[in-house]
């Protein structure tokens, strides 16, 4: 790890002021991606602004048909929350499958979204539920948030404060895991809400994306069979040691069908 200055503000306001003053500083949330990157010297910011002490960024609440989760809420808190289990059980199960237990005890929703790892789970849920990401400056629709490999619509000095998930009628997330990292090779989040169906795919491309052809088919019949014949083109999909683009394309259809089946079964 290279040397850095460390700040631990107690309020959001203080954090934003520190980030304004230190243009190259990195916000530190749970650190479960950032700290390994620092250790391997893949990243070396001159300063870290630790958001861990900012209580106002934590918490889970349901109001007016949405589930709002504070950006600093840890994966294990989402996984074990009664409110999440009652409103969007698929989200609780997704959170319970991120990384491993120890990672879930530190990793946060906001950190995962801001990092936008191409194989992360939360982007699939945010996109698959049509959530709204609130920052200190504005509200960003999920469809506008994930812009590329580790890239988001966030601007310098902008911090995610919370995420609002509309409550679906049913939803599910199924992940086919990389045998080494256990990140998603392909993860598919499906939801059926008031008049809308969403299918979001993670792990397969440079960032999470919606499978619109599948959404269209599922809108006229929310069954696994409805999408069984969809052939996803491999163009633009990731190809690596663990899975070729062709294999990932195939898996998207298989895993999406399983997600639909799971949503129907309430699993």
């Amino acid at each position: 790890m290279r040397a850095f200055d460390y700040h631990r503000p107690a309020t959001l306001k203080e954090a934003l002021s520190l980030l304004r003053k230190n243009q190259d500083a990195r916000p530190l949330a749970g650190g479960q991606s950032l700290i390994p990157a620092l250790k391997l010297r893949l990243a070396g910011p001159p300063a870290l602004v630790d958001l861990g002490a900012i209580e106002e960024l934590r918490g889970i609440r349901i109001d007016s048909g949405t589930l709002a989760i504070g950006a600093l809420t840890r994966h294990s808190e989402v996984a074990s929350s009664r409110d999440v289990a009652m409103s969007i059980p698929a989200l609780a199960r997704l959170a319970d499958g991120i990384g491993d237990r120890q990672v879930r005890n530190l990793g946060t929703l906001g950190g995962a979204l801001a990092n936008n790892d191409p194989a992360a789970d939360y982007p699939a849920a945010v996109l698959g539920l049509g959530a709204t990401i609130t920052t200190n400056k504005r509200a960003i629709a999920a469809d506008k948030f994930f812009t590329g490999l580790y890239e988001t619509a966030l601007r310098p000095g902008e911090i995610i404060t919370s995420v609002a998930f509309p409550l679906p009628k049913r939803a599910a997330y199924v992940k086919f895991r990389n045998p080494a990292s256990r990140f998603a090779i392909v993860g598919v989040f499906v939801s059926e809400g008031a008049g809308t169906v969403r299918v979001a795919v993670t792990g397969a491309a440079n960032c999470a994306f919606r499978a619109r052809a599948m959404e269209k088919k599922l809108a006229s019949g929310f069954t696994p069979e409805a999408i069984a014949r969809i052939k996803v083109p491999p163009d633009g999909l990731n190809s690596d040691l663990h899975a070729s683009a062709e294999y990932r394309a195939h898996l998207i259809t298989v895993i999406a069908q399983r997600a639909v089946a799971a949503a129907l079964a309430g699993k």
Partner: peptide, 26 residues
């Protein structure tokens, strides 16, 4: 050095965490 093996697991405020994946200052 990538936060996977878990040999460093300790409890912080009652939660199991990987002590190689958290700064002391945190």
């Amino acid at each position: 050095d990538t936060g996977q093996c878990g040999a460093c697991t300790v409890h912080v405020n009652g939660r199991a965490v990987k002590a190689c994946n958290i700064l002391t200052v945190q």
